[in-house]
């Protein structure tokens, strides 16, 4: 096989590969167009830990989360309860999330050994399935940053497990 044939064969192989790759990419993109898989966030953890279980929409993150590299803290967020699965909770509730800059499956430590979930970041508008304890002071062994202090006497919940809900 002379050099010309080699080049031609190589070029054809390359074109074929690119065509297949493009086709595969299109397929993947189309799958992506269908959006993430719907989930109600239920699993064996969220259904069993804590004394309260709700599906709730994250409606407010007051301010910015401080860095998490040196100091631990719980940050109080505002949720709107959509469904109460266990215990008592309704309407707008305040929930303390421990070290919220960390994915929930990496946030547990000696202060908060039992927390977890599959939420990787906190964004206003997201819906979470939460297992909660209340009041936060009896469960959270860390500094609590509560920008709503003085605005309400409502109890603050402690997020034990936080799973993502896709509706």
């Amino acid at each position: 096989m002379n050099l010309f044939v080699k080049l031609k064969t190589g070029l054809l192989s390359f074109v074929s590969f690119m065509s297949f790759s493009s086709f595969s990419c299109c397929l993947l993109c189309c799958a992506g167009c269908a959006g993430p898989q719907l989930t109600d966030g239920a699993d064996e953890h969220v259904a069993t830990v804590g004394s309260v279980e709700v599906t709730a929409k994250l409606v407010d993150i007051p301010g910015e989360f401080p860095p998490n590299d040196l100091y631990d803290y719980a940050y109080v967020l505002k949720y709107e309860v959509q469904t109460t699965h266990r215990g008592q909770a309704a309407g707008a509730i305040l929930v303390g999330q421990y070290n919220p800059l960390k994915p929930r499956n990496e946030a547990a430590d000696k202060r908060a050994e039992d927390i977890g979930g599959n939420v990787t970041e906190f964004r206003v508008g997201d819906v979470h399935r939460l297992a909660l304890e209340v009041p936060i002071d009896e469960y959270c062994m860390a500094g609590i940053i509560n920008k709503y202090a003085g605005q309400t006497d409502a109890p603050i919940y402690w997020a034990v497990w936080t799973n993502k809900v896709v509706q």
Partner: peptide
């Protein structure tokens, strides 16, 4: 401890 919504 925590005081008036502030940590530390």
């Amino acid at each position: 401890g925590n005081v008036k919504g502030a940590a530390w």
